[in-house]
């Protein structure tokens, strides 16, 4: 097993953004084999703080949410709530000493397409700079030997 750390991000995005199709999804997955875990959601309003926290807790070094542009939500205010929840979650992780930048929310701009691949890569890069999540790789533990990230008895990295 190589001990080199590769950041893993959880990427939540609203299925209603025009770029949220299957092809885009597969392209990102292919390019970043396991480093980007994509979660399309029916509406960004479906995102709960718990989703973001559990992602960070279980497998991700960072969590990003992409929503439709303000005023563009099919459910009117789903993106508004997504933003607020992401902010609450960010406050919460900061309060336990985790970098707030590990949670990012990106709103689309009306009339402009949202480059999911670009966002994923930008965020990956940002997370690379911040470094491994101390949740998954606790202090004094080299990346790759983390013990804290297993679920149902299986290592999440089996999947990633």
């Amino acid at each position: 097993m190589t001990l080199k750390w590769r950041p893993v991000i959880a990427f939540f995005y609203c299925q209603n953004i025009p770029e949220g199709g299957w092809e885009e999804r597969l392209a990102i997955e292919k390019k970043h084999k396991g480093a980007v875990r994509l979660f399309p959601i029916p509406c960004s309003g479906r995102i709960d703080g718990v989703h973001l926290l559990r992602a960070l807790e279980e497998f991700a070094d960072g969590a990003i949410v992409a929503t439709c542009p303000p005023g563009g939500c099919l459910n009117f205010e789903g993106n508004l709530w997504a933003r607020k929840r992401a902010e609450t979650s960010r406050k919460l992780i900061k309060s336990i000493g985790l970098e707030g930048e590990r949670i990012l929310i990106v709103e689309g701009t009306a009339g402009k397409s949202l480059d999911l691949m670009g966002l994923a890569e930008g965020f990956l890069q940002k997370i690379s700079l911040i470094g491994p999540s101390p949740v998954l790789y606790p202090k004094d533990m080299p990346p790759g030997t983390g013990v804290g990230f297993s679920l149902k008895g299986e290592s999440v990295h089996d999947y990633c």
Partner: peptide
Amino acid sequence: EKETAMLASALRMAAKMNR
């Protein structure tokens, strides 16, 4: 329920971070 889940998750993370 929701707040409990959030707090639990945050506390678990904090615990892991601090080994």
